Computed example of a mutant assay.
Amino acid sequence: MRFEHSDRVWEKFPSLAAGVVRARGVGGPAPVSEAVSAFEKRAWARVEAEGELESIRAWRRAFAAMGFKPTKHRCAAESLLRRWRKEGALPRVHPLVDLCNAASLAYAVPVAVIDVAGVGGDLLVRHARGGEEFTDLSGRVERVEPGEVVYAQGERVAHSRRWAGRQSAASGVGPGTDEVLIVAEGLHEGAAGDVGELAGELEECLSALWGAHTSRALLDGRTRTFEF
């Protein structure tokens, strides 16, 4: 399997950096509460509101560049932060998702957790050509408009909407998930350092809590492809 961004995405967003982790053996339960709490404490320690964080502001600019109103359509990290601050906690979904959501809060960057078996093929982050099909978590099929950045599998399938907005049903983690690709993406100045550190922390957690077999890379323009 190969994960990469298109040349056009790198040209349009030269500050892009992605920390990627592949992990096998994450299907069972794991005691993530302590790690989740540690990530959340770091998020609570920040004094800025999410709209003041440069990592979030960079994503807002990217959404505007794709033709979306940033205060209507938000990246996954901003949506998580807004819900978390309002409710004081996030719902527990799956130990791995809970861990990655907490890491997203701590670093204020989107973190996607992709079921490798559910996708079953290469992923290219690219501008949509129009007509790609996205299946949401309820099973509803949406057709993507041209110009929107998506996680594309081949020519016709999109596994995300608005780049780091929503994931498809097939790519989401479920009870049968055993192998995942975790992708943390930043667009702000210094993003490479942030997403690289985030990926390293998650890799340590996966090894310690699940005993997972992992590999990791930083995609920063010089390195653009992750294969496993």
Rank of each mutant, 00 (worst) to 15 (best):
M1L: 02
F13W: 11
P14T: 01
P14A: 02
P14E: 03
A17F: 06
A18S: 15
G19C: 07
G25C: 05
G28M: 01
E34R: 14
V47W: 13
E52D: 13
L53R: 14
E54I: 10
R61E: 15
R61M: 13
A64H: 10
A65F: 05
F68I: 11
F68N: 11
K69I: 10
P70K: 08
K72D: 11
H73K: 15
L81Q: 11
H94M: 06
N101H: 15
A102C: 02
A103L: 15
Y107A: 09
V109L: 04
L123N: 07
H127C: 08
D136T: 03
D136W: 00
G139W: 00
R143M: 00
G147I: 02
G147T: 03
E148L: 11
Y151D: 05
E155M: 10
Q167D: 12
A170P: 03
G174N: 14
G174H: 13
D178F: 06
E185F: 07
L187V: 04
H188M: 05
A191C: 11
A191K: 00
A192F: 09
V195P: 05
G196P: 07
C205T: 01
H213I: 09
T214G: 01
S215D: 14
R216V: 01
R222P: 04
T223A: 04
T225V: 15
F226I: 02
